[in-house]
Design a protein around this nucleic acid. Sequence first.
RNA 1: GGCUACGUAGCUCAGUGGGUAAGAGCACAGCACUCAUAAUGCUGGGGUCGUUGGUUCGAGUCCAACCGUAGCUACCA
Length: 662
Amino acid sequence: MRRILVTAALPYSNGSIHLGHLLEQIQTDIWVRFQKLYGNECYYFCADDAHGTATMLSAEEAGVSKEEWISRLREEHIKDLQAFGVDHENYYSTHSPENEKLTQEIYLKLLENGAIFTDEVSQLYDSSKELFLADRYVRGKCPRCGAEDQPGDNCDMCGATYAATDLIEPRSVHSDSKPVLKSSTHYFFDLAQFTSFLREWTTSGTVREDVSNKLKEWLESGLKPWDISRDAPYFGFQIPETSNKYFYVWLDAPIGYMASFRNWCDRSGVEFDDFWKPGNDTEVHHFIGKDIVNFHALFWPAVLKCSGFRTPTRIHVHGYITVDGEKMSKSKGTFIKAETYSEFLDPETLRYYYAARLTPTINDIDFSFADFLARVNSDLVGKLVNIPSRCANFLARGFDSQLSTELSEPSLFEEFAASKASIEQLYELGDTAQVVRAVMSLADKANQYIASNPPWELAKQEGKEQELQNTCTLAINLFRTLCVYLKPIVPMLVERSEQFLNSEPLTWNDVDEPLLDHRLGKFKRLMNRIDQKQIDKLIEASKETSAIEPESDEDQITIEDFQKIDLRVAEILDARFVDGADSLLELKLKVGTGERIVFAGIRTAYDPEKLKGRHVVVVANLKPRKMRFGTSEGMVLAAGPGGSDIFLVSPDDGALSGMEVR
RNA sequence: GGCUACGUAGCUCAGUGGGUAAGAGCACAGCACUCAUAAUGCUGGGGUCGUUGGUUCGAGUCCAACCGUAGCUACCA
C-alpha cells in the first residue's frame, strides 16, 4: 500500500472560488478519491494563501482587520469547495501558528547552511502610502509603444518587457502619486547553489517533459538569487532578528502545505516526519497550474533540500480554463463563481465535465457551454443512468427487485472487469478524459446488450421470466461496474446508485465479483438533465451589474414605446403554491376595483404567507397567457437573477392599489 | 522580444519509433424500437491534419519560417 500526501495550490484570500480554482481542486480531488478507492493511504491538504500586499490592502479597503478579512474568505472558500465534493483532510490557512513556526525553522536552516545573504535593493516607493511598490502596482506609459496605463513589468498592448523604472510618467496605483526610488536591505536565498541538484531533480520524473523543458530556460540562463524579504508594511511573518522585514508570501505559501498537514497530524495521529523527512517511502504530490511552475519545481525543492526536508515525488501541472474560447470575463458573465454555479446547476455536472476534458498535459481547457450540455446529458443521463432506468421496473414488477442467482452472459461482465487495469493506469496518470471515454464506450456496450436482448419483449412472453430476470441482472451488474469506475469523478451520483443497489459503498475490486441473489432498493431518478435555461440563468447571474455595456441605438426604445406599458400598483390579496410547479406562485391581485390571477416565478425566494397584503407593481395590459396551471393575467415586476435572489419591486408606503406607475 | 506548449471533421479529442484509403464520441440526416429522463439500437454524409517551404520512395507524424492561442520572463499571487 502506498502512503501519499497530496496538495492543491492554495487559493488566495482575496476573492471567491471560481471555475479556475475548481478545475484544480476537482482534478486533485478525483486523483485522491481514486487512490483511496483503490486502497492506498492518501491525504489531501489545502489552505488559503493569506499573506501579501493584496490581502492587506483589501482588508484595509473593506475596513476590517486582516485577520477578520482572511477568516471570512476562508469560511466562504471551505463552503464553496465542499459543495463541489472536494474533500480535504484539512483546509487551513497560511496565517497560522504552525506555518509561522515552520517558516522560521526553515529560514534558520537556510541561514545556518549559508544560503541566505542580504543586499541593497532600490525600488519604487509610494511616499504618501509609505509602501514599496511591486512592479504590478506601478502603471504608466509603455516605454516601447507608448500605450497608456500599462503595468510595471510588461506591456499588454505590445508585449514588451521592462523594469517599472522604465515606465514613462509612472504612478502608484494605490494613491496616483508619482513613485520615488528608494533603497532598502533585502534578504536573498542563494538559489544558484542548487543548480546541479535542480537540473537532476527536474529531469528525474518529477515533472513531465514539457514542464522540464521550460525549466531548462531558468537553469541554463543561470539561477539568480531569490528575494525572499519584503519591507513593512506587509502582511506576513516577520523575519527573525529584524524589526521591519517580512518573509515574501511565496516563501511561506508552500510551507503552508506542511503546516496544514501538521495541524491535522496533531489530531489524527499520523506522523509528520513520515511524510516530510527524507528516507521514507511515502509520497508527496503537488497539483498546480502552469503559471506557478517555477515556484514549485525550482524554489520549493531547493528550499526543502537545503533545510533538510524531503522533496516532492511529483508535480502535476495543468493548463488554464477558458470559457467559450475566451478568458473569463465579468461583463460577459463568464467569470463564474462556485457559489453561483451551484445555485443553478448540480456541482457534480462540473466534476464530470472537467474530468471528461482533463489530460496530463498543460493544454488549456475550454469550458464550452454547448459541449458541456451535450456531454452531461448524453453521457451521464442518456447512457449511464439510462441503464438501471430501463431495467429497474422489470425487476421491481416481476421479481420483487430480486437479482437472479447467475449471469446470463458472464463473459460480458468479465469484459467490463477487464478494463480495470487500464483505467487504473489512466487515473494514476491523471488522464481522466480517457477514463471517461473508456467508461462511456462500456456504457454503449451495456445499452447494446439490452437492445439485443430486449426485456420488453421477454416480459410479454410466457415462460421467459427467468431470461428476463437474468438479462436485467446482468445489465444492473454492468451498471454497477461503471459506477465503480466513475466513483472518483461523480461520488454523489454513485452514492445514490449505491442506495439503489442496496449495497455497501463500492470499492475498486467490486468489479470482479457480480452482485447476485440480492434485493435492490427502490429505483429513484439518479440524475436530472441539464436545461439550456439553467445555463442562461447562470450566465445572467454571473454578469456584474456594474459591467453592463451601454445600450446601442437599436436596443433603445422611445417614450411612446414605454407609454404602451400600463404599469399599476396592485395589492396581493392571496398567494399560494402551485402543485407541480417548482418556481411559480399563484397570486390573487387587487388592481383598483378589479381582481386578477397572476402566476409569478418567485417561489424560490418568497413564502406566500408573507406576501399577503403587500403592494407590488404589475404590468396590467399584458396579453393574458394560458399556462398549464391556469391563465396568467399580467406580470409582477422583480429584480435579480433568480433562485433565492429575486426581489419584488414595491411602491413606497401610501401608494394605493390601481395607481398608475410612470 | 525570448522561452515552453498547443493548432487534426460544426464541437471535444485519439492518431504508437514517418508506411495500407486519416479514426472515435457528440451534433446532423435516414431507418428501427418504445423498457427508459425526446432516452436506446442500426446506417450514413462530413476533414487540402493552422499556412508556406524543405528532408524522404513515402509526412498529420521529422526540420525551418510564418500566423494564431495560452503561460512564464525571477517584485501579482
